[in-house]
Design a protein around this nucleic acid. Structure first.
Lengths: 123, 123
DNA sequence: TCAAAGGGTGACATCAGTGTGAGGGTCAAT
DNA sequence: ATTGACCCTCACACTGATGTCACCCTTTGA
C-alpha cells in the first residue's frame, strides 16, 4: 500500500510516517516511480510505535524494543548482544516504573472525580 | 527549605524547579532576600510532577491533575467547573490507555528477554 | 490535454522540556 | 575583607516530535 492509505488507516500524518522511517522505526519498499510501498504488517507497526511514543518513550528506545514485538521472534534472536539485553532490561524496568506511576495517578484522578460527583449530588 | 536542598532531595536540576514554578506546577514563598522558600510538601509534589512528565504528560495537563492529588481534597472542591471535570475524565481515560499500552509492551519485552536467556543457556 | 490528487525531498518553524552561561546579589567562614 | 557557595533573572541553544510550506514529479479522470 502507498503512504496515503497507510496514513488514513493509522490516522497518522504522512509527515510522521516519513519521519518514523527516517528514524528506522518502519520500513518501506519503493515502487518503480519512487513512491513508498508498505506491507500490510506496517499498519500494526505504526500503531505500536505511536502507542509507545504516546507513553513517553523516545524513538531511539522504541527502535530497540521493536525486535521484541515480532512474531516469530526466533528470527531475531542471534543478533542480540549482551549490551542490548542490558538496555532492554533497563527499559523494561523503566516501563514498570511508569506503569506504577500512571496507575497511582489514575487512581487519584478517579477518586477525585468520584468525590466531586458526590459533592455535586449532595448540593 | 531553599532551592538547593529541594534540588538535591528531588535529584532535580535547579533550572527545572524554577521552570516548574513558572509553569504553575509548584509554589514557593520568598525569603526577605529574594531566595525561594519551599515547604516540605513540595518535595513530594516535585517527584509527582517528574513522574507524570516522564510518563508523557505535558505540564499543561499536569497542572490540571494536581488538584486531585491534594489531601485533604475538600478544600479544592468548590473550584471545579464542569469543564474541568470533562478534562479530567478525558485525561483519566488517556491514562488508562497508556497503562494498557505500557503493560502490553512491558510483557512483550519481558517475554523476549526470557526467550533470549533460554536461548543463551541452550547454546 | 489539463487539472487534481497523491507522491517525493528539503528546509524552516514550533513547542516543550532541558542545558548552560552571563552578570549580579547574599551570606557564612576564613 | 575577601572567597566560595548559593541564590537571583535573563536569555540563548538544543533535542525530539510535529506542522507547514515550497517546489517538482506521476497518475488518473474529465
Amino acid at each position: 500500500m502507498r503512504i496515503g492509505e497507510l496514513s488514513t488507516r493509522t490516522r497518522t500524518p504522512v509527515r510522521l510516517l516519513r519521519y518514523y522511517e527516517e528514524q528506522g522505526l518502519i520500513a518501506s519498499d519503493r515502487l518503480p516511480n519512487g513512491y513508498r510501498d508498505y506491507e500490510e504488517y506496517v499498519v500494526d507497526r505504526v500503531l505500536q510505535v505511536r502507542g509507545l511514543l504516546d507513553v513517553g518513550l523516545p524513538t531511539r528506545i522504541i527502535k530497540q524494543i521493536l525486535p521484541c514485538l515480532n512474531t516469530p521472534r526466533t528470527i531475531h534472536m542471534p543478533y542480540v548482544t549482551p549490551d542490548m539485553v542490558a538496555t532492554l532490561e533497563h527499559e523494561r524496568d523503566r516501563m514498570a516504573e511508569k506503569i506504577e506511576c500512571l496507575t497511582k495517578n489514575h487512581r487519584a484522578v478517579t477518586d477525585y472525580l468520584d468525590a466531586v460527583r458526590r459533592d455535586i449530588r449532595a448540593s
